[in-house]
Design a binder for these strands. Sequence first.
DNA 1: GAACATGACTTGTAAAATGCAAGTAACCTT
DNA 2: AAGGTTACTTGCATTTTACAAGTCATGTTC
Lengths: 117, 117
Amino acid sequence: MSQARRSSCPIACSLDLIGDRWTLLVIRDMMFLKKQRFEEFLESPEKISTNILTNRLKSLEEMGLVEKHAYSNHSRRMNYQLTEQGESLRPVLKAMIAWGLKHVPDTQIPDDQQSEV
Amino acid sequence: MSQARRSSCPIACSLDLIGDRWTLLVIRDMMFLKKQRFEEFLESPEKISTNILTNRLKSLEEMGLVEKHAYSNHSRRMNYQLTEQGESLRPVLKAMIAWGLKHVPDTQIPDDQQSEV
DNA sequence: GAACATGACTTGTAAAATGCAAGTAACCTT
DNA sequence: AAGGTTACTTGCATTTTACAAGTCATGTTC
């Protein structure tokens, strides 16, 4: 992910931060599927690889969209949570869900997520 | 851009189609700035390069988000326009504009676009 | 208390995408 | 016939991605 912004356009700046194939999937896992741990993100069907996940979690933390905390005294276990700023991406994600469901064939969301649409 | 979908998740599928740093900027240019020609897209402040622009316009056309037409009999001049399906990305773009304006410092949109927010 | 399990990475390497500059080619006007 | 316009194409260096394997600190089990 690059660091220099390309313009002052809010779309371009948003894309500079979250415009790739993986970042929003990690946020999806946290926002809708309530995942909080490295290994949980790895289990998602898109199969993110470990180096990219490490990289994205670090970027998200640096951007202030995610916070990382040690999970009490439970080995090296870490807890990743959306910050308020990360949570504020919900309308973007919801718009993408609605668009995908309508315009990409054979997309679907889990039964227990129907209330989100 | 890859062609195989990674899962049936509408977010993942949307990202497979439009999840990169350039595609949504081309759509922005068409949707809000009413740009329709190759050279116009090149003028945007983010300075997309010609090979990437060619590639993205082709992908967008293949996805059915954009239509390409010859501009009457005016040399090789082409006209690119959003299809209804491309136009339907407006809520996604608007959500990103709102998020960018609120959460990325020093972002702004042109005066004549204020009504879009 | 040594072997094993857990969880979060790191490393290496090949493949693909991006960025930049320059060149090409069809068509139209002069 | 010459020159301008428009939309690309090509070459190449750099960066990012993808995949597989290995590491390492801590906690659990026998």
